[in-house]
Each structure stands twice: as C-alpha cells, then as structure tokens.
C-alpha cells in the first residue's frame, strides 16, 4: 500500500537529510507506529506519502501509484484515498460537527443525499452520536479529535495517516482515540500513526518503525516503543 524505495529527502535549506535512504513497505490493512524523536523524519515520511514533498532520491509508491509519475492535477485524487489526522485537529470553528465532516465530502463534489446518509454513520463510528449539532468549542479535545478522525475517514480512504493524534490529549482520553483508530483499521484501512506516546505504542502491540536522524533504526512487528526512552 505504501512502498518507499531507497528514499532520501534533503530540504533545500538544510544539509542533513530529513530521510536518508529509507526503504519501507506497509501492506494493505496494516497498523504501523512511526516513532522517534522530533526531527527524526516522521513528518517528512507522511508528507512524502501525500506528495506534499518530492523525494530527492528514490521512489515512493502509494496505493499502487508511482508518485514521481503522478501529474500534479491528479494529486487531489491521490489525496482522496488518504485520510489525515493532526495533533491540532484542524476543525472549522464556524461549522458544527456534522458540517465539519460533511465539508470533506462537499468539496469533492459528493451529492447531498449521499452526504446525509454517510456522515451520521461515521459520526456514530467515532462515538459522537447525539453530538452532531455541537460546535467545536463545545467539545472536549478528545471529542474534537474524533470529529477530525470522522472527517478523515468519511470518504472511506484506503490509508489513514495520523500525525501525533494524541499529542494534545490526556492519556485516559487517548485510549478512546486509539480504539477509534483500531476500529477503522479493522475495516481494512491501512493506518500509519506517528507518535511520541510510549504507553500507547506498548499497549497496542502493533508494528513499530523507529526513525532516528532520518534512518530506520528498527522495524518490529508487534513491537514496543523502545527501551531507550
């Protein structure tokens, strides 16, 4: 599903590569933790998958497509197959829960009838039933992140990328978020989650890829966060 082939990424203003000769394979339906200290290349990895950046060397394949050969006007179609969740939720403050989730479908031109059918299902899937009319500032951080997950998943993407989704949330609430991500993973969606949260990684027992200074230092199925931290 995601295939990195000797990928190196050097940002123009920096000498040290953000990713150095990285080769990673993520299969369909996998749940992968991407761990490592800040600046180890986790975000760069995610940006390369979205084709927000181009690799300096090497090839990136996503959902069977060679991104180097994907023309710019087709990038939106790639992104429709990838859902994204961030540490800072990125909800629209002037729209309620339903509207925030529906927005993702409106802007790719889905018909209104489809939206009215699908959005409540996803809102329920993330555990926000009965709160569709709430505004973001009436929700807790955990609930806001659930809305963001619902928005990322409402178009049933093949891949869900999560960049420190529990970074702004207390540990108890984080468990709930992880359950939602796990539920989404069980529907067959590949989930890649970058995180610093050792407790969560240890409790989930999923595949762990550890990056350090842009290199893969560990790739472990059913791994833990690591002894060093």
């Amino acid at each position: 599903m995601i295939h990195f082939d000797n990928v190196t990424k050097v940002y123009p203003t920096q000498k040290r590569p953000a990713l150095a000769d990285v080769s990673i394979d993520v299969d369909k339906g996998e749940f992968v933790f991407l761990v490592g200290p800040s600046g180890s290349g986790k975000s760069t990895f995610l940006r390369l998958v979205l084709k927000e950046e181009k690799p300096t060397h090497g090839r990136v394949h996503v959902a069977g497509k060679d991104l180097a050969r994907l023309s710019n006007w087709k990038v939106p179609h790639l992104r429709r197959r990838i859902g994204c969740v961030f540490q800072d939720f990125r909800l629209l403050p002037n729209k309620n829960v339903f509207e925030n989730v529906a927005f993702a479908l409106e802007v790719i031109g889905k018909p209104r009838r489809f939206i009215r059918k699908v959005v409540p299902e996803v809102v329920e899937l993330v555990g926000l039933e009965g709160k569709a009319e709430r505004m973001p500032d009436e929700l807790s951080g955990g609930e806001q992140q659930r809305v963001a997950i619902a928005r990322a998943f409402v178009n049933r993407p093949q891949i869900l990328l999560a960049d420190e989704p529990t970074g702004n949330i207390d540990p108890a609430t984080s468990i709930g978020i992880m359950k939602v991500l796990d539920r989404i993973n069980r529907t067959g969606t590949t989930v890649v989650m970058a995180t610093h949260d050792a407790a969560i990684v240890d409790s989930m027992r999923k595949r762990v890829i550890e990056l350090e200074e842009g290199e893969v230092v560990r790739d472990q199925t059913r791994g833990v966060y690591g002894q060093a931290y």
Binding site: L50, P76, R79, R80, I82, C84, R90, I108, R151
Partner: peptide, 8 residues
C-alpha cells in the same frame, strides 16, 4: 482542509 481531503 480542502487540499488535504483531495478537492481539485
């Protein structure tokens, strides 16, 4: 957000 969810 539009960019992210793949709006053209």
């Amino acid at each position: 957000i539009m960019r992210l969810v793949g709006a053209s």
